[in-house]
Design a binder for these strands. Structure first.
Length: 268
DNA sequence: ATGGTAGAGCATCTA
């Protein structure tokens, strides 16, 4: 099974790039973020033409998350689960795809450490853990994929010195991310590249950051142990960050060994 | 010199 996550920075502006990418990457399950669409405007038909069922949770203004799947979509939970304080934004969506509990997340940016949005970010990450405890168990096959707006380690940003006192690297954010780890999730991409640095998934549009390799690794595929043990290969597809009208994020994909006894036709 | 670019949408806000 091939899992992928991609912050597309407006699906309306990016649809042709996403269609092109799906046609050659052929992921089984894709989590999208920053669709910036209402549910009514989501292009289900464009994805069904490529063999994907799709679900979306958006408000039409900012954020907005989706899941595309070639292996089924069931048990859809838009937003935080019942029992968790509701979100004011549309940043999380969970569904069961081919036996895997899949959650697409777009963690708040935080803006700056003294901004109230930073407190919202920390609270949001705490609620994400509550949400996962309701909808899934770490003993099951769980994938939480998306734009976490947190670089797990200093080596995940191009210059740690440039981020001193900024969001995305602060200890409280990293502790909130680590709390997801202690619940039972680990970094499926990093598992394939334990010693390699300068691996990024996001580059600011400004100042030629992409071509100067000034990036951050903030798009993550977090996996429970039953999936982590099956990780075969992973990649940031930097080609998708090139060319005409790219997103500022590249898609991240993780390949899992196929297990015929559990899947539902993913490799037909 | 708080710059630079992209997207939504029409004045700025978000990133």
């Amino acid at each position: 099974m091939r899992l992928a996550t991609w912050n597309v920075n407006s699906l309306k502006a990016r649809l042709s790039r996403v269609e092109e990418w799906l046609a050659y990457a052929r992921p089984d399950v894709v989590c999208l973020q920053e669709t910036k669409l209402s549910d009514a405007a989501f292009p289900h038909l464009a994805f069904s033409a490529l063999g994907y069922e799709s679900v979306h949770h958006g408000n039409g203004r900012w954020n907005g998350v989706a899941i595309l799947s070639r292996v089924g979509v069931d048990d859809v939970v838009p937003g935080f689960a019942e029992g968790v304080e509701a979100d004011t934004d549309t940043r999380v969506l969970t569904a069961r795809c081919g036996g895997v509990s899949v959650t697409s997340v777009y963690v708040p940016n935080g803006r700056s450490l003294d901004d109230e949005h930073y407190r919202y970010k920390l609270d949001w990450l705490a609620k994400l853990r509550e949400h996962l405890a309701v909808v899934a168990s770490p003993a099951e096959e769980v994938a939480v994929c998306g734009d976490f707006n947190v670089a797990p380690e200093d080596r995940d940003v191009w210059d740690p010195g440039a981020f001193a006192g900024s969001t995305h690297v602060s200890p409280p954010e990293r502790e909130a991310l680590a709390a997801l780890g202690s619940w039972g999730l680990s970094d499926g991409f990093r598992a394939c590249y334990p010693h390699e640095d300068q691996l990024y998934s996001y580059w600011d549009y400004r100042s030629g950051d992409f071509h100067e390799h000034r990036g951050m690794r903030i798009d993550l595929v977090l996996l429970s142990e039953p999936l982590e043990s099956r990780v075969k290969w992973s990649l940031v597809d930097r080609n998708a960050r090139k060319g005409k009208q790219p997103s500022d994020h590249a898609p991240v994909l993780v390949d899992l060994d196929y297990r015929a006894d559990r899947s539902q036709g993913a490799r037909s």
